[in-house]
Design a protein around this nucleic acid. Structure first.
Length: 747
RNA sequence: UGGGGAUUCGCCAAGUGGUAAGGCACCAGCUUUUGGUGCUGGCAUUCACAGGUUCGAAUCCUGUAUCCCCAUCCA
């Protein structure tokens, strides 16, 4: 993984360090109801990657709790994807359905504890009773059923005595919870359908919220990593595990942002639409962001993995630029793959002063790729070049063949154009050219300067091949549906001409077609009789970029809308006036205090002990406020008297405000008196310039570069020097004194 | 009228009170028998916005804005 830790690795580090877990177990838990795509690759990379990084293990688990949607063909696709990316799930693939008996037992346990009940409300009522995001729900009358009745009903549900939808099992949590997921979530539903693995054994199937956390627990998972949309489900996850009193270590859930890539769609639903609607040729259509699609197109697992690594892992919804992916595949293939010549749009060139034939030994790799290998390249009087490598009326900066400008045939001779032959419609059909016999590549004595070398094939020996050119499937950056499909996303070139070695010798499956891009021998349609190549990705092309000048879009800076703060009540207003007028607090601080009754009473109490209104207010608003935000006021370990004391020793210069924060943190933790803490830890401020001065000298001596930069005008560096001094004194140096001294010394 | 997340360059993304990392993209220059690659340099006086605390704030406090998720017997 990358050098800077992502937040998940940081959590794992922390958990290992604190001894919460001794082993890291993760899992990749897809539902087998669709083909895996590059978003899954990200999840695979994270889950298997973390397991690998910490010498742990990652399970591949099929989350198959919904028999109406899932199928074994998807299981295979999922296994393929994980394998292709180079990960090992160990002996067996796991299935949630393997745990159905255990999960059932846990349900019984919850019922016995009175924490779950069988509800018999019709579906619409259940929805209605749930309430809305802004209004509380209400509990079903069936929630009052006795444990015995629930047990009996649940067993009969299992036996299949009821029809689908007649009853459900749900957790008894809180129908008024602000988190909708906690309003008595469903645990089990009746489904009289065949399960692709469990067969017809079960008439009831557990819901995600119940099955997932328990499956994690059963497997001994330590870190249950999922995407952001499950954040609300975390409360249920914890509730189930906590209520069941499962012995630790038990898993905890952590969420990251799912992958979005522009010009593509990632949702299973939209992918399915494309496949079923015939917009693409199947799940492995090379334009699809499915693993099967990338594989078919010719992407390497390394490139996908590297992509997953470079995009990082975070909690902000993001849309990664496809160019990032394209970079990864080019970067991977650049050092791996042989270069060969293939003409996609042939233009015949007859070299009038050349007779006979010769074989040129040409390296497969350019000078900067440290690989060995070459092939024999036939050269003859009749060759083909790319149609757009000749131009009768060249634009400025055109480096290729023109009536006036000679060009080198890559690995061969320099030619110049003598005659342009056109058909009746004016289309160029042939070029008559002359070659320079002494210009052969490697032994050029001609002294002719050319601007570029172009690719070509010899007419007599070139092989005809099919080349499939793929472009992005959508033309919209954030495609909505099929209306955004790029009509030019697929083009077949039936009669491209390729040099013979590629077909006869087959040095590799992937090639760079010189000056064009990377191509892959299609794993399915390629035959010796009819070779087929897929374009993986084009080379970077700074020439076409120059010619297609697209209007530079100047993204309008988004305007910030400013809202209004809610108005103060009468009492708050009078308190505010008192604070600003009588006590001289600034309006911001007074505002915060006046609006919070707990804070203001805390403040006034402290003010009775120490008459230092401004300092006291600042610390109450900035530090105390944070603590009461996080904890119940009653759980606070410090009191007003101690805060007053803290402020006093800051006011009188015993400690700096920087140290005060440190002391405050200690008070929060231990409840000790500030003076005591200062004494115990020896935190008394050093203000004597005679003591500070030598430290500054030392720092200055150690950082000559930064001294030079500072003197050159980089005044931001003042903070650097002050920081260093503070650091070496454990924060005890008086920052004001340090600042003055440093500024003086560096003048 | 609720709850939960998020916001650092065009796109990703580090950074958790002391010099705003890195990659992609982009722009120059050099190298080059691929208009490729490689190399060098340029790309955030500023971290959604407005205040406050502090010697010092992307980081702490307050408020505001914007986006995403939650009312499937889906996962």
């Amino acid at each position: 993984m990358s050098k800077s830790k992502n937040f998940l690795s940081a959590i794992v580090d922390e958990d290992l360090k604190s001894g919460k877990y001794t082993e890291v177990i993760t899992r990749f838990p897809p539902e087998p109801n669709g083909f895996p795509h590059i978003g899954h690759a990200k999840s695979i990379f994270i889950n298997f990657g973390i397991a690998r990084e910490y010498n742990g293990h990652c399970n591949l688990r099929m989350d198959d709790t919904n028999p109406t949607k899932e199928d074994t063909k998807y299981v295979e696709a999922l296994k393929d994807a994980v394998e292709w990316l180079g990960y090992d799930w160990g002996k067996n693939v796991k299935f949630t359905s393997d745990y159905f008996p255990k999960i059932y037992d846990y349900a019984i346990e919850l019922i016995k504890m009175g924490k779950a009940y069988v509800d018999s409300l019709p579906e619409e009522d259940i929805r209605e009773y749930r309430g809305t995001v802004t209004t509380a729900g209400k509990r079903s009358k069936y929630a009052e059923r006795s444990v015995e009745e629930n047990l009996d009903l649940f067993e009969r549900m299992k036996k299949g005595e009821f029809k689908d939808g007649e009853h459900i099992l749900r957790a008894k949590i809180d129908m008024t919870a602000a988190n909708m997921k906690m309003r008595d979530p469903l645990l089990y539903r009746i489904r009289h359908v065949h399960h692709f693995r469990a067969g017809d054994e079960w008439a009831i199937y557990p819901m995600y919220d119940f099955a997932h956390c328990l499956s994690d627990y059963i497997e001994g998972v330590s870190h249950s990593i999922c995407t952001l949309e499950f954040e609300n489900n975390r409360d249920v996850y914890n509730w189930v595990l906590d209520e069941l009193g499962l012995k630790s270590p038990r898993p905890y859930q952590h969420e990251f942002a799912r992958l979005g890539i522009n010009y593509t769609v990632m949702s299973k639903r939209k992918l399915l639409e494309l496949v079923e609607g015939g917009q693409v040729s199947g799940w492995d259509d090379p334009r699809l962001p499915t693993i099967a699609g990338y594989k078919r197109r010719g992407y390497t697992p390394e490139s996908i993995l590297n992509f997953c690594d470079t995009i990082g892992i975070a909690k902000a919804n993001s849309m990664v630029d496809v160019s990032q992916l394209e970079f990864c595949i080019r970067d991977d293939l650049n050092t791996k793959v042989p270069r060969v010549m293939c003409v996609l749009d042939p233009l015949k060139v007859t070299i009038v002063n050349y007779d006979g034939e010769e074989e040129i030994d040409a390296s497969y790799y350019p000078h900067d790729v440290p690989k060995e290998g070459s092939r024999s390249l036939p050269f003859s009087r009749e060759i083909y070049i790319e149609r757009d490598d000749f131009n009768e009326n060249p634009p400025k900066g055109y480096f290729r063949l023109t009536p006036e400008q000679p060009v080198r045939l890559k690995h061969a001779y320099i030619i110049s154009c003598k005659e342009v032959i056109k058909d009746a419609s004016g289309k160029i059909t042939e070029i008559k050219a002359e070659y320079f016999a002494d210009s052969k590549s490697g032994s050029d004595t001609s002294g002719i300067k050319v601007k570029s070398a172009i690719h070509w094939v010899s007419a007599g020996s070139a092989k005809e091949v099919e080349v499939r050119i793929y472009d992005r499937l959508f033309s919209a950056e954030a495609p909505e549906g099929i209306e955004d499909i790029n009509p030019d996303s697929f083009e077949v070139i039936k009669n491209a001409l390729i040099e013979p070695a590629v077909i006869n010798q087959k040095p590799d499956e992937r090639y760079q077609f010189e000056r064009q891009g990377y191509f892959y021998a299609d794993p399915i349609d390629y035959t010796d009789a009819k070779p087929v190549f897929n374009k993986i990705v084009g080379l970077k092309d700074s020439w076409s970029k120059k010619t297609n000048v697209t209007a530079a879009k100047s993204p309008a800076k988004k305007v910030q809308v400013d809202g209004e703060e809610v108005a103060m009540s009468e009492e708050q207003k009078s308190l505010f006036d008192k604070y600003t007028v009588d006590l001289g607090l600034n309006s911001e601080v007074a505002n915060i205090l006046a609006r919070d009754t707990y804070l203001s009473s805390f403040y006034e109490e402290a003010l009775n002990i120490l008459n230092s209104p401004v300092s006291l207010a600042n610390i109450v608003v900035n530090e105390v406020a944070r603590e009461i935000k996080e904890k119940e006021a009653s759980a606070l370990k410090f009191n007003t008297k101690q805060i007053a004391e803290l402020v006093k020793i800051v006011d009188d210069g015993t400690i700096s405000s920087k140290i005060a924060k440190q002391v405050f943190e200690e008070m929060v933790k231990t409840g000790n008196n500030p003076t005591q803490i200062v004494e115990d830890k020896g935190l008394v401020q050093i203000s004597d310039p005679a003591k500070i001065s030598p430290i500054i000298d030392e720092i200055i001596e150690k950082n000559p570069d930064n001294v030079a930069k500072f003197k050159a005008g980089n005044t931001k560096l003042l903070g650097f020097f002050v920081g260093q001094v503070l650091k070496s004194t454990g924060g005890k140096a008086n920052p004001k004194v340090v600042n003055e001294l440093v500024a003086q010394k560096l003048k």
